[in-house]
Design a binder for these strands. Structure first.
Lengths: 212, 212
DNA sequence: GTCTATACTTCGATAGAC
DNA sequence: GTCTATCGAAGTATAGAC
């Protein structure tokens, strides 16, 4: 409280650099944002940036680290998956959808998703992260779940890997459509746009695989 | 023949600039390729580039123009769509899949697809092109086709827009996976990778909507 | 921890000789 | 149509005073 006498709640400079960088990176991409620009927006000189971050890339790394830690917090608790499956495919699909949406729930996370979408295209580190953590790992989880459902005869005996692709490719498509194609068109959040579409998708899939 | 006396078939400089630029752009993205680099690869000085193209962006425009003209050549002849539908959903899906694959059949087209995938992220012109020509238009075509099939009671009465999304989101996903995530991993062509996957996808969809 | 000043690099593009 | 030479703008980063 000592340094915040009046109305102004002054954030540490390092935090302001983080926020401004995220804003700019997510709008224009890492390459198209200069250190000068960040400094100007923060209200300091470029050279001062280097008192807080080793270099420009270190800012990006900090953002991704933040993203990873947030992602871990919203993941499924170990072992709870199978209990959920027993409640039937409907429930499982709904919880699954909610899980994705929860990971994009704040403005910060939405910006970082956008940033990752951009940088996946020309940043090797980012592409590997996307491939492993955001694509292969979820695909494996879904395949495993479908396998269990098939084994328990809760759904038709379709190849679980195929089902995983059928389910998840639509999710990736939604991300692509929202974070790449529509990002500047309007300011609806991902949630508003995605909920109905995911509902249609899960209903279609349920109809396709449920046992009457 | 006058200038090609010996073994060397010398392409015009303008063509070589086109080819080299496409190579480099598709590997590294437009921004990360310099005019100097193009010139070096072609074997001339940077200033000579400007005798053939007004500026760097004009090279990119030429590539996209080439892409558009190639795309038009491989599209469905007007009016042939409905005849095809009458042959049943199986045939229609197969022809549809072949249509996509035909558009990526040459190394040049594959490179341009990759380039478009990259530039869609930060080039406004490119993004609009992708949205209209490569996303919305095909979605509308598929929706229309599904509508006809529903009307003719060839498939179950599912919302045709939903079906269009279900079908097409998988295709977009394949593109994304191949042109963005896997591009440097191996050198299989898109065709080799996609054929089986598309087959699984169309079989799943057929099973989901066909009337027994 | 912020500033001024500056080093160093790379970029797209042009002028003008040949 | 190619070359040499060069410009101006913009980028990242560092040194050192305060």
């Amino acid at each position: 409280m000592k340094n915040q006498k009046v109305t102004q709640t002054k954030k540490p400079t390092k935090e302001r650099i983080f926020e401004v960088s995220l804003d700019l990176f997510s709008q224009k991409g890492y390459d198209r944002v200069s250190v000068r620009e960040i400094a100007r927006e923060v209200g300091i000189r470029e050279s001062s940036i280097y008192n807080h971050y080793k270099n420009k890339e270190a800012i990006l790394d900090a953002i991704i680290d933040y993203f990873k830690s947030e992602l871990n917090q919203s993941s499924i608790p170990e072992g709870e998956g199978e209990d959920l499956i027993d409640k039937g495919p409907e429930v499982f699909f709904n919880v699954g959808a909610k899980l994705y949406i929860d990971r994009i729930n704040t403005p910060e996370m939405e910006k970082i998703w956008r940033l990752i979408s951009i940088e996946t295209y020309h940043n090797d580190k980012m592409r590997e992260f996307f491939k492993k953590e955001l694509l292969e790992e979820p695909l494996n989880v879904w395949e495993n779940n479908f396998q269990i459902m098939v084994d328990k005869k809760m759904i038709k005996p379709v190849n679980p890997r195929t089902l995983a692709y059928e389910y998840f490719s639509f999710v990736i498509f939604l991300f692509f459509e929202y974070f790449v194609l529509k990002y500047d068109d309007d300011f609806d959040s991902f949630m508003d746009l995605a909920l109905d579409r995911i509902k249609n998708h899960t209903e279609f899939m349920l109809d396709a695989i449920k046992i009457y």
